[in-house]
């Protein structure tokens, strides 16, 4: 019924490639390095949402380094660019942390509509397939039918959900979820929270309270605090990452909606500045559309 893991990953890469390829593949590197080549590279980086600052830095690096290395061919510059992008992104790769503790708690957060609930569902599916017992905590008690949405996912995946009424205190939901997972000896609790803009202080405080509730059970938890960034969003992602990190000590990033034509390049400045590991990418709305982030493939795909 389900595709093999290999196929699944391949499909994801293919998709990522398809939409990332477009930019750099349009540039002809088979020429001598000149100003227009730098301009072309600059435009592609900007169109990929890399942003003015990081783009400037990358272009500046290319100029200096190509002089230093006495590079004159476009193809060599392309290799240098690849090297640079990989250099930036390799510092930000990482896989899901899990401890031996039971339950491990994974907390999801992010702005409205970025794909938290969907990613919770996909990750639960992935972990369940890996043999873990998983419980979902419906801590978005604010948005209309948020609990029902998560419940549909719980049923799809075939895992338990702990929920309260709409409007209940999210921390209380989290408390009950962990408590119940603990008493049943389950492995992993995944907490879905309400979308919130990083600029809203009271809502950031609410997240801190949720985090404190989790820490009451164990100082090692949550083992992951995952920020879900919408890959179609531009420079605002940088503000989001900064503010959420400051408020809640984000341990990883998930970039969603990379199955479209947006390039998700805002991760480059985020990675450069904040060094938060990128753990997964979302490449669709289906249960299997979650992929580990691989910087090498990500960069290669930009050029193939």
């Amino acid at each position: 019924m389900f595709k093999s893991v290999f196929e699944r990953i391949k499909k994801g890469i293919e998709k990522t490639k398809k939409q990332l390829v477009e930019g750099f593949s349009k540039i002809s590197f088979g020429r001598k390095i000149d100003e227009s080549l730098f301009e072309d590279i600059e435009a592609v980086l900007l169109k990929a949402d890399v942003g003015t600052k990081a783009t400037q830095e990358i272009i500046e690096f290319l100029r200096q380094e190509s002089k230093k290395r006495k590079i004159t061919e476009g193809e060599q510059l392309k290799e240098l660019l690849k090297e640079k992008l990989y250099d930036i992104l390799k510092d930000c790769s990482g896989s899901l942390n899990l401890t031996n503790e039971k339950p491990n708690v994974i907390l999801f957060l992010g702005i409205n509509g970025s794909g938290k609930t969907t990613t919770v569902g996909k990750l639960a599916y992935m972990l369940k397939k890996d043999g873990y017992s998983v419980v979902l905590g419906a801590a978005d008690t604010f948005r209309a039918a948020a609990i029902d949405q998560l419940e549909v996912w719980a049923n799809r995946v075939g895992v338990r959900i702990v929920k309260h009424q709409a409007g209940a205190d999210p921390s209380a939901v989290v408390f009950d979820t962990i408590n119940s997972a603990k008493s049943k000896g389950e492995d992993i609790v995944i907490v879905d929270t309400a979308g919130r803009l990083h600029t809203k202080e009271h809502l950031m405080k609410e997240l801190q309270k949720i985090k404190r509730t989790i820490q009451k059970f164990s100082p090692n938890q949550p083992v992951e605090t995952l920020l879900v960034l919408d890959g179609t969003i531009g420079q605002n992602s940088i503000n989001q990452a900064k503010t959420f990190k400051e408020a809640t000590d984000v341990t990883g990033i998930v970039i969603t909606k990379l199955d479209g034509t947006a390039k998700g390049g805002a991760i480059i400045p985020i990675c450069k500045e904040l060094k938060i590991p990128i753990k997964f990418i979302g490449v669709g709305e289906d249960i299997e559309d979650l992929q580990p982030f691989n910087p090498k493939e990500f960069v290669d795909a930009l050029f193939e």
């Binding site: 949402d49 531009g234 034509t261 805002a266």
Partner: peptide, 12 residues
């Protein structure tokens, strides 16, 4: 449309 959308906004 999301006001935060990046460069792909036009395309979409």
């Amino acid at each position: 449309a999301d006001a935060m959308q990046g460069q792909d906004a036009i395309n979409t």
